[in-house]
Amino acid sequence: MDKPLIHMENLTKTYHIGENVVRALQGVSYSIRAGDFMAIMGPSGSGKSTMMNILGCLDKPDSGRYVLDGEEISDLDRNQLAALRNRKIGFVFQSFNLLSRTTALENAELPLLYAHVGGKERTDRAMAALAAVGLKGRECHKTNQLSGGEQQRVAIARALLNNPSLILADEPTGNLDTKTSEEIMGIFTKLNEEKGITIIMVTHEAEIGAKAKRSIHMRDGRIVREEVKA
């Protein structure tokens, strides 16, 4: 029980952009328990996006260890990482990242396509997930016919579909107005509290960050401060 869901140990990541060397991560160590709701905060260029990419198994660190749910990430290849994302991670992006001109249902069921689940089971599970985020009756709308808030709900439904252990949200409210932002945050809070899903969210808005149980602040590729909500 004591084993953390996420264990990061001395992670480093360096980018070479032309002549410039960007040290995005300079030795980050941190552990996150299952069921946590954490915000990663910090100004742009602080390394939070890089950390997000590594946490989401979209990228690998140059050095250090990253263990997700007991699996060592550094040893995996592209396809193994894809399979891991499929099984364990749900993404929610600032710009929604839905397939355009495609229905909400088709978007939501996408992870199951790559989990080799098909037919009625896939549709049923996608319908249930869409209903859970309050989109019952809008399943067959194309994404471009949906409002920003609705689109983000579709994205959350998609993230939930494979029962992931972890949801990674990258500025999930960045493109939404205040009211919609609160609705979306409400969904996250509910998922965390009622279903115990671990949520890690990147944001630079203090108000949004305050909804999380805990937050870490980053600067220049290092964690500089940790706050735990009372």
Binding site: G56, N79, A82, R85, R87, F91, L99, L110, Y114
Partner: peptide, 16 residues
């Protein structure tokens, strides 16, 4: 390209 990125993020393998 973006669609491909989305598909990869939700677990599409190279083969897919």
């Amino acid at each position: 390209i973006r669609e491909i990125g989305i598909r990869m993020s939700v677990g599409a393998k190279e083969r897919d």
